[in-house]
Every structure is written in structure tokens, then in C-alpha cells.
Amino acid sequence: MAAQDDLQGTAPLELSHRICVTGEAVVDFNGELDVTTAEAAVSYVSDLVDRHCGPMIADVTALAFCDARGLAALARMAGYAEQKGCLFRLASPRPLLVK
């Protein structure tokens, strides 16, 4: 799935996932998580939580940019997963994202 706003000239956000043999679902974020892509990302992850019902890992290694709306989206994803009884964690956040 890709979310992109051509009018703003932002880089697309590419989302993909895989289910590990350990049972964890890993969502790969590639691109920019911002005001133009946040809702699509929340929808993607929420749908996966509903279908998977197990631990979730958001791999943000390839996340090039994340604004305040992107951070709020990650918090919403975590909250939704927690509400459904699923562990949610970030993998490989860059120092600026952690800050």
C-alpha cells in the first residue's frame, strides 16, 4: 500500500508486512510518515491488528521523515493494538524519532 500527495510533492509512504515464524507481524515503513500519509498508515496497521491478533512490530528503519502527525499516528497504532490485546513496539527508530 502506498500513500502519496502529489500536490505537496512529498515522498510516498510504502507499507508492507510479513508474519514471522515466531508469530509476530512486522510492518515495514518506508518513506515519510506525515500529515499526508498518517491516516493511511493508521488504517493499514489497524486492519492488520484486526486480522492478525498477535504481537506487532513497526519497523521504522527506512522511515525518512516523521512529523508530529506521524508521531500521533504511531501512538494511535500502539493504542489500538493495546486495546485489542496485542503487544506493539517500534523496531530500529532513529535517534530523532526517539527524541
Score class of each variant (00 low, 15 high):
52 H>G: 08
96 L>I: 09
73 A>I: 09
96 L>E: 15
39 E>S: 15
13 L>A: 10
96 L>Y: 13
10 T>Q: 11
95 P>C: 01
14 E>I: 13
98 V>T: 15
66 C>I: 06
44 Y>V: 13
6 D>H: 09
30 N>Y: 00
26 V>A: 02
94 R>K: 12
12 P>W: 13
90 L>M: 07
31 G>Q: 04
62 A>R: 15
25 A>E: 03
21 V>P: 02
99 K>H: 11
49 V>W: 03
17 H>W: 08
14 E>G: 13
3 A>T: 08
66 C>V: 06
56 M>N: 08
31 G>T: 07
33 L>N: 02
32 E>N: 10
34 D>H: 11
43 S>Q: 14
94 R>H: 09
39 E>H: 02
59 D>N: 15
35 V>I: 15
82 E>C: 03
58 A>H: 04
59 D>G: 01
7 L>R: 12
95 P>V: 12
35 V>G: 04
41 A>S: 15
21 V>E: 15
39 E>Q: 12
89 R>F: 04
5 D>T: 07
78 A>K: 06
99 K>A: 14
57 I>M: 10
69 R>M: 13
61 T>H: 11
59 D>E: 07
4 Q>F: 09
44 Y>S: 14
86 C>M: 10
62 A>T: 09
56 M>Y: 01
40 A>C: 06
63 L>C: 08
34 D>A: 10
35 V>M: 13
94 R>Y: 00
53 C>D: 11
8 Q>T: 15
59 D>R: 02
28 D>G: 11
69 R>A: 13
27 V>T: 07
66 C>Y: 02
20 C>A: 13
87 L>E: 08
88 F>I: 04
91 A>D: 10
80 Y>V: 03
27 V>G: 06
66 C>R: 06
16 S>N: 12
52 H>L: 07
24 E>N: 00
49 V>Y: 01
41 A>H: 01
44 Y>T: 13
42 V>E: 08
41 A>R: 01
29 F>I: 11
73 A>W: 10
50 D>A: 05
85 G>H: 05
12 P>V: 07
80 Y>E: 00
97 L>N: 10
4 Q>W: 09
41 A>D: 06
47 D>I: 01
73 A>D: 03
50 D>Q: 11
33 L>V: 11
51 R>A: 12
17 H>Y: 14
41 A>E: 04
32 E>G: 08
13 L>N: 05
79 G>H: 04
39 E>T: 14
52 H>Y: 01
62 A>S: 12
22 T>R: 04
12 P>E: 07
73 A>C: 09
36 T>I: 02
42 V>C: 07
60 V>R: 03
56 M>A: 05
68 A>F: 04
92 S>I: 00
